[in-house]
Design a protein around this nucleic acid. Structure first.
Lengths: 407, 407
DNA sequence: TGACTTTGTGCCTTCGCTGAACAAATTCAG
DNA sequence: CTGAATTTGTTCAGCGAAGGCACAAAGTCA
């Protein structure tokens, strides 16, 4: 036993919960940490000291509370500036992006969104990991894990992509295995985690964004085409027994609506995506910018003035409200966060969307879910990082010192 | 400090989990308890001894394992025969029932199903509690709590009944307050718990019936009219943020179907209830027996032979499959338990229902949920008892010895 | 300036579990 | 029938992690 213990062995069990509180911004000071953990000041102090010696957080002598309070001011707890990071990646319809993310969900460094015409998963992910390795090398920080967000359901426990329906990607691709192989090739810790982008975005919003504090958080977001959903229950992502839950795109919102490739008609997927809005407004998709950008710009610039755009926006908003009501009837969340086009629909006319949800939900005002736009930039990326941080948040000691055996 | 400790103070934290394991039948012996709890034999032994001195379980010297194994046979752990019970009640469309339920979910004593024409909640619940108090008096056992199942969503945290749509009951009735008042009037512990009958049935099936061991359990059941749903995630009932989740009756399964009182058409509620089946088979509801009994008898006796009944059953089965597929797409459960008429539809033609679910679920076979009929008699009643047992399962010591203050 | 309030820290105690040793009850091989 | 092997139950010493308490420190308020 070479490593002589520092005699203070308190706060080992509470280490993970404490780090999680600092990570999510719920413990700005040791005093708050004490009450949030439900332990004594002595224990909280020991926990904070331990996290500091691990290099994860710093304790500033500057007052951490907003002043005005009586008594001795508590010190400020913050994420260490030079602490470890994780590698986060996101694959989207026409490219990828890599980033380094620190505790607290802050993006330390990121590549621009890289376009690629290649449809081979191994090649895209290989480029992504190489870009991430470059970021790491220039930053000089320690990397504790890696996470990847993909625009497809990811089946558990195999880690294979089920779709996607809207990306040229072979169904059933073993994304996690590919990701791990690329990580190993780049000399990085080969224990990467993969998840669906909307799911991971929801996780990020829950911990660092608009979902903060929600017990039952539902997220619905449109990408370039199609609609994705996610559910965070008591702080944990609900992905179902096989990772295939919250496939909300095929709720029926208009029995007489346009046909969907799932075989039905009037699915949320085809009735509330950017193309549906452009279509309803009588606009053909232009050559420049993504469909999402075109639809967003249409709402931003012409919604206040153009009657046809108003009518189209209202129609799509009403359909979205009906779909959300169906989810409210089943899940009864206390908060709903909207992303992609749905975010702009909410912001264009919040009252109309709220009324539409209320009109179609069985319990009306009683199942009162707050509708909010998403607030994080790159929430899927931050969510991918959350996945990678999870082992550290669960047991900081074990995750930072993998050498547990003798010697 | 008058009560001198017996010096053996082990196994206090593990007491609740251990009791839960015995309660759900997952720990027949101390050896299994040891591995399931992940503790040492010493601790498991101390925990079992403590539960025995509390009068909750008994340890028989008879071998508990099915023999054939090597080594010293482990003793059998079982629920104490003369242990405490809880009072469980169920209100249904035309009456009520009261019972005493022991740990392990066994019904110790029960009243017959009592009919009542009175529609006043306070009166029905008052009669129910009085009948339960009679059962208690004759049994002579200690009562540790009370739970009530009602055929309506129960809003949390107020404890008010939201519906029901199908019972003459004023919406918004404060059932929990009424229940507590009746309990107090009868001199029983006035901390009663209330829940929706399908929810509580699902909880009971998860702990003692067909849902045993499922991680994501979905239950769908028809009562006399209407369809209810419930979800048990990792052993805990998901009732949503306001208790209003799993309102599955208004999923659209036939856009051209019959109108529903919710304002839409072709809801699961009106397309797969007993009346829908009788209707589809061209039978008028008879005067004798409930609609559920008539529909069940129709399937049992005439399904194999009568072509019209076959066709009607198939049509309703297909609609049910479509509705279940919608839920599978959103929740991705690993098991689905069907009750009421849906149970008989499953048993009449399991292959057809499975095929219908698979055809309409987005991931087909991948989201592979096992369909099973419910197995418990009176599962709502047992579930109401689960609600009452919960404090005991969480902390046996605290629940059995309310006197924690000095003296 | 001094009372009051709240926070940080050191030391001892308490609680609850682990680990090792030993005894008990059964199966299996000869 | 006897003894080795195996698994279970029990006792006891020990230790890790948190609680409780006393005291010092750093502010606010009268």
């Amino acid at each position: 036993m070479t490593r002589s213990r520092t005699r203070l062995e308190r706060g080992r069990n509470a280490l993970g919960p404490a780090l999680q509180l600092v990570h999510t911004g719920r413990a700005p000071t040791r005093a708050v940490l004490t009450t949030e953990l439900g332990v004594t000041r002595a224990t909280a102090g020991a926990v904070a000291a331990e996290l500091q010696t691990l290099g994860l957080i710093t304790v500033d002598a500057r007052p951490g509370a907003p002043a005005g309070a009586q008594g001795r001011p508590s010190h400020r707890l913050s994420i260490a500036d030079d602490g470890p990071v994780v590698l986060a990646g996101q694959v989207h319809a026409d490219g990828y992006r890599a980033a380094l993310v620190a505790l607290g969900g802050t993006i330390v460094a990121t590549t621009p969104s890289c376009q690629t015409v290649d449809a081979d998963p191994a090649q895209i992910i290989g480029e992504l990991v190489a870009a991430g390795a470059d970021l790491l090398a220039t930053s000089g920080r320690r990397c504790l894990g890696a996470g990847l967000a993909v625009p497809s359901a990811v089946a558990e426990p195999e880690g294979t992509a089920r779709g996607p329906l809207h990306l040229a990607w072979p169904p059933g691709a073993p994304v996690r295995d590919i990701f791990n192989r690329c990580l190993a090739d780049a000399g990085l810790p080969a224990d990467g985690h993969c998840g669906n982008d909307v799911n991971l975005g929801a996780l990020a919003e829950h911990r660092h964004g608009a979902g903060h504090g929600a017990r039952h958080l539902l997220c619905v977001a449109t990408g370039h085409r199609g609609v994705g959903g996610a559910l965070v229950l008591d702080g944990r992502l609900h992905t179902g027994s096989a990772g295939l839950a919250l496939e909300v795109g095929h709720l029926t919102v208009d029995p007489a609506g346009r046909p969907c490739q799932c075989g039905s008609r009037g699915c949320l997927d085809v009735e509330t995506d950017p193309l549906a809005l452009l279509d309803a407004a009588g606009r053909a998709p232009g050559p420049e910018g993504s469909l999402l950008d075109q639809a967003r710009d249409l709402i931003r610039t012409e919604y206040p003035t153009d009657p046809a755009v108003r009518a189209a926006t209202h129609a799509v908003t009403d359909r979205l409200g009906q779909g959300l009501a169906g989810l409210v009837n089943i899940l009864n969340p206390d908060r709903i966060i909207l992303g992609g086009l749905h975010r702009w629909l909410l912001q264009a006319n919040p009252g109309r969307l709220r009324a539409a949800v209320r009109a179609h939900s069985l319990w009306g005002k009683d199942s009162n879910a707050a509708l909010q736009p998403c607030t994080l930039d790159h929430n899927s990326l931050v969510g991918a990082a959350e996945l990678a941080w999870q082992p550290v948040l669960d047991d900081p000691h074990a995750a930072l010192q993998p050498e547990t055996a003798q010697q």
